[in-house]
Computed example of a mutant assay.
Amino acid sequence: MGVLTASLRHLSLLGYLRRRLSTTAPATRTGISAAVAKSRLRKEFDPDRAVTIVSSVADSTSSTSARYALELTVRRLARSRRFSDVEALLEYRKCAVAGLTEPYVATVILSYGTAGMLDHALRTFDEVPVLISAPRSLVSFDAFLSACIRAKKPNRVPGLFAKLYEKHGITPDVVSYGVLVSALCLTGKTDKAIETLKEMVTVKHLEPTTVIYTTLLDSLYKKGKSDEAEALWKEMVGNGCAPRPILLLTM
């Protein structure tokens, strides 16, 4: 009975989204602003109402608020374990939104990660060149690596990091390395994370961010390696990185 109910709800959401697509012409589309939707969604925890709100947003894929509203809606659905509805919403967005940008597709990738649907995130990453009619870049690459952490599968990041950038000819940046360091720390491989930091500096000539330093510091202190943490702290301050709270990629 539970499976039947979920299937019927999935079909209902698909029907709702398709009706919006077929009855609302792009030239005359109206609705609430992305900023208004974002504000409402912060207070709305009912997944069905959340879908209604995000579906009422006027088309603006370049808007940070629009992307944030989509992520909030996916969180509401995922918390209710309505994963088929997550897929219906995100796949609809990939097809229905005109002029897709890579940052918007990256939001879809991250949203799949939030829902723990990593296979869907990878499939979307593979589709990027078709969806945006341009080669994929670090935007979607970094988004997919972060999606692994959101999906609570940080152990997959190191292998994918090496495989994907070689396969697609993408040169990792400091954000990419930041995700890699975070993944290594989350899986208890702090020593490897320290090696990665050294590689960044000596081989790739990238300047570590405060976030990378504080992620490593947190991991070292948790492992009781106070001396190493103090040495790293001095290095961080010496490099001009002001201490700040750790930004969690899983939020």
Rank of each mutant, 00 (worst) to 15 (best):
T101P: 01
R123K: 14
A121I: 04
R81D: 11
K94F: 12
A115F: 07
S140M: 12
T107W: 03
V130N: 09
F125W: 10
A121E: 02
P135D: 10
S111K: 08
T124D: 03
A115N: 05
Y92L: 07
D85A: 13
M117D: 01
A98K: 09
T124R: 09
G99H: 15
E127F: 04
V97F: 09
V105L: 06
F83K: 05
R81I: 00
F125S: 06
V139R: 10
L90R: 13
L90N: 06
R123H: 15
I132K: 07
M117I: 01
H120I: 01
V97M: 11
R93C: 09
L138C: 07
L122R: 13
S111F: 02
D126C: 02
A106W: 00
K94R: 15
E87D: 14
Y112M: 06
G113P: 11
I109S: 11
E91N: 15
L131A: 07
P129T: 10
A78G: 03
T124L: 11
T114N: 01
F125V: 10
R81H: 13
T101L: 09
R79H: 13
T114P: 00
P135K: 07
G113N: 06
R136E: 04
V139N: 08
S111D: 02
V105R: 08
V128W: 12
L118E: 06
A106P: 02
R81F: 06
P135E: 13
S80V: 00
E127C: 10
A121H: 02
Y92I: 00
A98T: 06
P135Q: 08
S137M: 06
R123M: 13
S111G: 05
A88N: 05
A106Y: 00
A78Q: 06
D119L: 11
E102T: 04
A96R: 08
A106S: 15
S84K: 14
R81A: 09
R79Q: 13
D85V: 00
T107N: 09
A115V: 08
L138Y: 04
R79L: 12
E91A: 06
R136T: 01
Y92R: 14
A121C: 04
V139Y: 01
L90Y: 08
